[in-house]
């Protein structure tokens, strides 16, 4: 078990309850999806794992998070990044005044590998996302939405995370582009063995590449199952609130 989230509860500003009770576990090398409607608590869950809650005045008020067997919920965000938990936040957090290549280099700054290893990795990113090579010297602000999403994913892979947290990578992308991004995420998991926790609203995109999926409603896990089982049920029941987590 690389990640074990146990009974966490999250509040924002000490008054807004965002997560009531969530349990998630991920095996090494898996892709696990968190599905659910807006406001269910999916993104908050990723922020709780990555430690970035502190930037948004949120706090884990109950429960524990274990990463590689060690408790991490007390650690600061940067310490967690250094231990290998890396988040691709929603809203494509580009360094918009830096070029594409500089963005990728910033990703590699936390590594202690030699320059030649990092250069190889940079070339590898360009094989995953060839369009980024064409745009390498361009200021990243000028990229299209899909290219920006590819860049922030590639930048995070440059950090060589042990656990990659992806927050809605398909958001706002044209269907074909979204599918391409999802298939590259699958390829990264297969080729580099990166464990991935994927938050998505688009279940049809996320399920085919997942080993396991959770449906979150109202800050609780409503269902945890294999993608095959999920396909048999009508997910709209959960998205539209006809079914929810048993309390």
């Amino acid at each position: 078990m690389i990640l074990d989230v146990k009974d966490i509860e999250v509040y924002y500003n000490n008054v807004i309850l965002a997560i009531e009770d969530i349990n998630i576990s991920i095996e090494q090398g898996q892709i696990v999806s968190l599905l659910g409607a807006n406001g269910a608590g999916k993104s908050t869950c990723l922020k709780a794992i990555s430690g970035l809650l502190e930037v948004e005045k949120g706090r884990v008020t109950r429960g524990e998070i274990y990463f590689e067997g060690k408790r991490v919920d007390q650690l600061g965000a940067i310490e967690r990044v250094k231990s290998g938990i890396c988040l691709v936040a929603e809203g494509r957090q580009l360094l918009k005044t830096l070029t594409v290549e500089e963005n990728l280099k910033v990703g590699s700054l936390i590594r202690k590998d030699s320059a030649s290893v990092i250069k190889d990795d940079l070339e590898r990113m360009y094989t995953y996302f060839p369009i980024l090579k064409q745009r390498a010297k361009q200021v990243s602000e000028t990229l299209s939405g899909g290219e920006q999403q590819m860049l922030v994913i590639a930048r995070t892979i440059m950090m060589r995370p042990k656990l990659l947290l992806l927050d809605e990578p398909s958001l706002g992308l044209a269907p074909l582009i979204a599918a391409a991004v999802i298939s590259e995420i699958h390829r990264i998991n297969q080729e580099l063995g990166t464990t991935i926790l994927l938050v998505e609203q688009n279940a049809a995109l996320a399920l085919p590449i997942s080993n396991k999926a959770y449906i979150i409603t109202n800050g609780r896990v409503a269902l945890c199952s294999t993608p095959e089982e999920m396909k048999k049920i009508d997910l709209r029941d959960y998205y539209l609130g006809r079914k929810r987590a048993a309390i």
């Binding site: 990555s50 990044v81 250094k82 918009k96 005044t97 830096l98 910033v106 990703g107 700054l109 950090m159």
Partner: peptide, 23 residues
């Protein structure tokens, strides 16, 4: 320089910098 790159990253987007391990 690596430090210069880090400084530009922070100047650009502090939240993104934290998630990239830059203080």
């Amino acid at each position: 320089s690596k430090i210069g790159l880090r400084m530009r990253a922070v100047a650009d987007n502090q939240k993104a910098s934290i998630s990239l391990g830059i203080h």
